[in-house]
Amino acid sequence: MAQSREVDYSRIKASPRVRPVTALLADSGRNAKPSILTVKAFAVDISKPMASAVAQITSRATGKTQQFALANGRLERVFNTPDVLAIEVSGEGYTTVFRSMTIAVSSAGNRYEFDAQLDPAPIKLTVWAVDSRTNKVIHDAHFTISGKAGRTTLLLTPDSATGLVKTDLPGRGIYQLTSSATGYGDFTKSIRLDSVQSEARVMLTPKKAPDVAQAQALPEAVVKSAKTAYVETPAAKPALKVPVLPSNVQMPAVTNRPFGPIEKGKAIPLKNIYFDQSSPVLRPESNAELDQLAEVLNANPSMQIELRGHTDNQGDFDLNVKLSRDRCQAVIDYLVNKGIAKSRLKAVGRGPIDSIAPNTNEENRKKNRRVEFVVI
């Protein structure tokens, strides 16, 4: 007969229980450390950090897009949850770099880096030449442009129909522009190109000027872009030093029959000036009105004026502003050829901003397309 045995249950250890997967995941989440993303921007190579770069980051988790300035070419972002990012790094005057990154979060604390190397964006330059007397496009002008280190000089021939030349240049900087045309003096000037979209209008002086005012005209290059505009003119001693009135001195009213009373700050329309359609080229019918304005300026040598160009609201806003400014510049060029000092004249393009009639029909739109001058 088998003997009974007493069991001491207190000595038996309980076997460990298997924990649910959800519990393990919960522990993992509690132990996860933040992940760090570092974005760096360089100009061409990693030895040149970009101080003015911008990073645009789109989060798939939130659906939001944020922009960040990269101080000294560097940005750090901390992520506490996983995400998928679309990153775009850009800088003015440089190409844009894109990258998609998956950000994971773990107990180890992950680090991610994106080194964005940006190449200089090409400058798209449009060049044309005009006659300094008539402001008409010279279709047979030829151009050369050079200046960037190690770059071959470009020989540019304009389109026979428009007289325009369009070319790509390797990047921003100072270039040497030369122009020549049959019957005109050669032109050479250094121009600074700062914007991706730039224009250069060259004014050529005929070799045999018909009058003294034309003979004294100086060649110039007008360089324009979306953000900058400046004029480079050969240095010359002015024949007459124009006194500048203090701002607190009131300009007396000037009476001249074509324009009526002229007072400081009052906009006076030039009613009889005409341009080619959608163009800054002055038509000959404008000469009489502009000659009268030149007479007023000659009779009042201390007077300074601002020419304001206006358009209707048809078409692209930026192009309208540019057209209105270029038309004012064409008027200034005409007055300078009549002996008026350029320092007394200022061109402002207002585009469709200051309409004087609703743009509801062609008659009203015609009223809005105008050039005015204001004594400043």
Rank of each mutant, 00 (worst) to 15 (best):
Q3W: 04
D8P: 05
Y9H: 08
I12C: 07
I12R: 06
K13N: 09
A14D: 14
P16I: 11
A23S: 11
A26Y: 05
R30K: 15
K33T: 09
P34E: 08
I36P: 01
I36S: 08
K40W: 00
F42W: 04
V44I: 13
M50K: 04
A69I: 11
L70G: 03
G73V: 06
T81S: 14
A86E: 15
E88I: 09
E88T: 12
G91R: 07
G93I: 10
Y94D: 02
T96A: 07
S100G: 10
T102S: 15
V105A: 13
S106K: 04
S106R: 08
A108T: 13
D115Q: 09
A121P: 03
L125S: 11
W128F: 15
D131T: 07
R133K: 10
N135G: 10
K136Q: 15
K136N: 15
H139Q: 14
I145H: 02
I145R: 04
L154C: 04
L155M: 10
L164W: 01
L169A: 04
R172H: 01
R172I: 05
G173W: 03
Y175Q: 07
A181C: 09
Y184E: 07
D186L: 09
T188S: 15
K189D: 04
I191K: 07
L193D: 03
R201V: 11
M203P: 00
L204H: 06
T205E: 12
P206L: 10
K208G: 08
Q214K: 01
Q214P: 00
A215C: 04
E220G: 05
V222I: 14
K224P: 00
A226M: 08
E232D: 14
T233E: 12
A235C: 00
A236G: 11
V244M: 09
L245S: 13
P246G: 09
N248G: 02
M251A: 08
V254P: 01
I262G: 01
K264M: 06
G265V: 05
I268C: 01
P269I: 11
S278G: 08
S278L: 10
S279Q: 07
S279M: 09
P284D: 14
N287W: 07
L290D: 05
L290N: 05
N298E: 13
N300L: 07
S302P: 03
I305M: 06
E306N: 13
D312T: 10
Q314S: 13
G315H: 11
D316M: 05
D318H: 06
L319H: 04
L319D: 12
N320E: 00
V321E: 14
K322I: 13
R327H: 05
Q329I: 14
V331K: 01
V331D: 02
I332G: 06
Y334P: 01
Y334G: 01
V336Q: 02
I340G: 00
K342E: 10
L345H: 01
A347M: 01
V348T: 11
R350W: 06
I353G: 07
I356F: 10
N359E: 12
E362Q: 12
E363Q: 15
K366I: 10
V371T: 08
V371A: 04
E372Y: 01
V375D: 09
V375M: 11
